[in-house]
Simulated scan of single mutants.
Amino acid sequence: MSAPLPAIRALPSWLLGRAAARGRTLVAEALAAEGVKMWHHVVLSAVGDLGPVAQAELGRSIQLDPKDLVGILNDLQSARLVVREPDPKDRRKNAVSLTEEGARLLERCETAARDANDTLLAPLSAAERELFMGLLTRISGTEPPAG
């Protein structure tokens, strides 16, 4: 007996969704081993890239609702991974920065996420990975990371 929904399963959107779900699961599991949730990692990474960064700018940069961002920042600040201090450019706003502990955790999370993605792409050769990433970049309408 064949798998149900053969027409649906042959759609690129279905296959991309299944691959994305597998990738999210692998990354989420790797981050959980570090005691971090996916959105917490996203916020840590953005603060690492942009910090010190105004809280509102941080939310816009990762397209996260301000209420959700506040909750995540509260968690990260309670864990001493980020600090919120008056923004030197505008003292009416908060600027978010990584603590040394936050920077160390971010480094471990980045390694864990890269390893999880390596697991996801393990069936592909190096040349296939490069081609696949180029194709994904083209169809997603995003620019590749610099470097």
Rank of each mutant, 00 (worst) to 15 (best):
V36R: 12
T119F: 05
G48A: 02
V53L: 07
R114L: 13
G134Y: 00
R80N: 12
I72K: 05
P12R: 08
A20S: 13
R18M: 11
M1Q: 06
I72D: 00
A116V: 05
D68S: 10
E107G: 08
A33S: 14
A54H: 03
V42I: 14
A33D: 13
L76F: 11
E29T: 15
P123W: 07
A20V: 15
P123N: 03
G48Q: 03
E107W: 10
T111E: 10
R60M: 06
D75V: 10
V53M: 06
Q55D: 02
A20L: 14
R84E: 06
D90R: 14
S13P: 03
A28E: 10
P4R: 04
R22A: 12
S140P: 02
R104Y: 07
D118V: 10
L106G: 00
L121I: 09
M133H: 03
A46R: 12
L69Q: 02
A21L: 15
E110L: 15
G17I: 11
C109G: 03
L50S: 01
S2Y: 05
L15C: 04
Q55R: 14
P88N: 04
S125N: 06
L69P: 00
L15N: 10
G23T: 09
D49K: 15
E143V: 13
Q63D: 10
V82A: 00
V82N: 01
L50K: 06
P88F: 12
S61R: 10
R91H: 13
E57R: 15
T99W: 12
S125Y: 07
E101F: 12
L76T: 01
A112H: 02
Q63R: 14
G141F: 09
G51L: 01
L121K: 04
R108A: 07
S2T: 07
A122P: 06
E143N: 08
C109M: 12
V43W: 00
L26N: 04
L120Q: 03
V70Q: 09
D75G: 03
V47T: 08
V36N: 05
S45D: 08
Q63C: 07
S125W: 09
D68M: 10
D87L: 09
N74L: 15
L58R: 02
R60S: 08
A112G: 01
S2L: 13
L73A: 03
V82G: 00
A28V: 12
C109P: 01
A30I: 13
A112W: 01
L44I: 05
D90W: 14
G102E: 01
L31I: 13
K93P: 03
F132S: 00
S97Y: 05
G147F: 06
D49W: 15
N74R: 15
T119E: 11
